[in-house]
Design a protein around this nucleic acid. Structure first.
Length: 262
DNA sequence: ATGCTCCCCGGTATCAAACC
DNA sequence: GGTTTGATACCGGGGAGCAT
């Protein structure tokens, strides 16, 4: 199985029209990212930080966990999961990625590589209206001593965009981070430094859970990040939060959620 | 076009040094 | 002696850059 959203450029075809997919594994008629054909399994354990043992059709397999966060409320033994096979590189230790986790209220995507793709598609499809669909988007750009997810150029403007994947929700409130993140705080500082006439700094929290209705930084888990977020916004960094609409076959940027910085 | 190396990602674990 | 802080290695994989 190849297809799905891209780790490498996709040669998959759109399930809407059967035509070739334009760009990075998206459905051509919407801002959805196509997850391709996923394999159902049951989580046995997260044996290492980046590796999970999953039972698939009675056989235990190892899957790469593309998420360095704790995921404590999601990665519970016995949880239903969906895997994406990737026979691509011979050097891969695991044959598949753990993509979706059933937390009881719907599917949650745990792949932190996905949000930048979602944001790019949302811009191109006019769903994320903070940027024009005609903007030129570059991935993985350097800013100061960090590497940010996107640089978005349009007219005479440049926007530096960092996306954050949010999987923790408590009482309807999505929270980030689920573990202290010095790098995340550094990214905020870089964005704040970059803001100037003609240069925007934007952080987009992409919430993977359908039960979220608001967003706030996780003050208890990482007070430095929370303070950094407030400082960044005070210096002109735009703080956005969007919730994903996730199915076992696709993910799309959906509703924008209100942000409470305290 | 392909293969290789290196850096980065974001946490955990461990150890050493500094401090009370 | 106990606690805190800082530095570093490590994990698996993506992607840029370079050589062939």
């Amino acid at each position: 199985m190849s297809g799905g959203y891209p780790i490498r450029p996709s040669t998959a075809r759109c399930s809407c029209t059967g035509g070739p997919i334009t760009g990075w594994g998206t459905f051509c008629g919407s801002a959805s990212v196509n997850l391709g054909e996923l394999v159902p399994g049951t989580l046995v354990e997260r044996s290492q930080r980046f590796v999970a043992r999953v039972e698939v059709a009675g056989t235990a397999v190892e899957a790469h966990v593309p998420n360095s966060g704790r995921l404590a409320e999601l990665m519970l033994p016995g949880t239903a999961v969906l895997l994406r096979r990737d026979p691509g590189r011979a050097r891969r230790r695991t044959g598949c990625d753990l993509v979706l986790v059933d937390h009881g209220g719907g599917w949650t995507c745990v792949d932190t590589r996905l949000p930048p793709h979602l944001v790019v598609e949302a811009i191109r499809r006019g769903v994320l209206r903070e940027f024009p669909p005609t903007a030129v988007v570059e991935r993985e750009v350097r800013l100061g001593g960090s590497r940010l997810d996107l640089r978005v150029a349009y007219d005479q403007m440049t926007g530096y965009v960092e996306t954050k994947s949010v999987t923790l929700v408590q009482d309807g409130r999505a929270m980030f981070p689920d573990a202290p993140t010095a790098r995340g705080t550094r990214h905020l500082a870089e964005l704040a430094r970059s803001v100037a006439p003609g240069i925007r700094g934007v952080v987009v929290f992409v919430v993977q859970r359908p039960d979220a209705v608001t967003f706030a930084p996780h003050e208890v888990m990482d007070p430095h990040f929370a303070a950094g977020l407030r400082t960044a916004r005070g210096r002109g960094v735009e703080v956005l939060c969007y919730r994903c609409e996730t199915t076992p076959s696709s993910i799309a940027i959906g509703k924008r959620l209100p942000v409470h910085l305290g």
